[in-house]
Computed example of a mutant assay.
Amino acid sequence: MDVEFGIRDIERPVQFSTDQSVDEVSQAVTNAITAGQPVTLTDSKGRRIIVPANALGYAVIGSETKHAVGFGAL
Rank of each mutant, 00 (worst) to 15 (best):
A32H: 05
L41I: 00
A73V: 10
F71Y: 14
A53R: 00
Q20C: 05
G46W: 05
D2K: 09
Q15E: 06
G72D: 13
R47G: 04
G72T: 05
V39H: 03
V25W: 01
G62T: 00
T30E: 06
G57P: 07
I10P: 06
S44D: 14
A55T: 13
V25H: 03
V22E: 15
K45I: 04
F16R: 00
D19E: 12
A28I: 00
R12I: 02
K66V: 07
M1V: 00
T18F: 02
S17N: 12
L74G: 14
A35G: 03
P38C: 08
S17I: 06
K66R: 13
N54A: 11
G46V: 01
N54T: 09
Q15W: 12
D19M: 08
S21P: 07
D23L: 11
D9I: 04
R47Q: 07
T40A: 15
D43A: 04
A32V: 02
T30L: 11
I7F: 12
V39K: 05
V51D: 01
E24T: 05
G46R: 06
K45L: 13
I7N: 01
N31T: 04
R48M: 08
F71T: 09
L56N: 04
T30I: 14
Q27F: 14
R8H: 11
P13Y: 09
M1H: 05
S17R: 14
V3R: 03
P13N: 03
T40L: 09
G57Q: 13
H67N: 12
N31M: 13
T34R: 11
I10T: 11
A73Y: 15
G72P: 01
V51Y: 02
P38Q: 06
I61G: 00
I49Q: 04
E24F: 05
I50E: 12
G70P: 00
F71A: 14
V69Y: 12
T18S: 10
L74P: 09
A59W: 08
G57W: 13
S21E: 08
G72Y: 08
S26D: 09
Y58A: 00
L74S: 13
I61C: 01
V60N: 06
E24M: 07
A59D: 00
A35E: 10
I61Q: 00
V3T: 01
V29K: 01
G6D: 04
E24Q: 10
T30R: 09
I49Y: 05
G62P: 00
I33C: 09
Q27R: 11
V69F: 09
M1A: 09
T18C: 02
I10F: 12
S21A: 04
G70A: 06
L74I: 08
D9E: 12
N54F: 15
F71L: 12
V29G: 00
S44A: 12
Q20D: 10
E64M: 11
R47V: 03
I7G: 01
A53I: 02
T18Y: 05
K66H: 15
R12C: 04
I50F: 10
I33T: 10
F16C: 01
I33W: 13
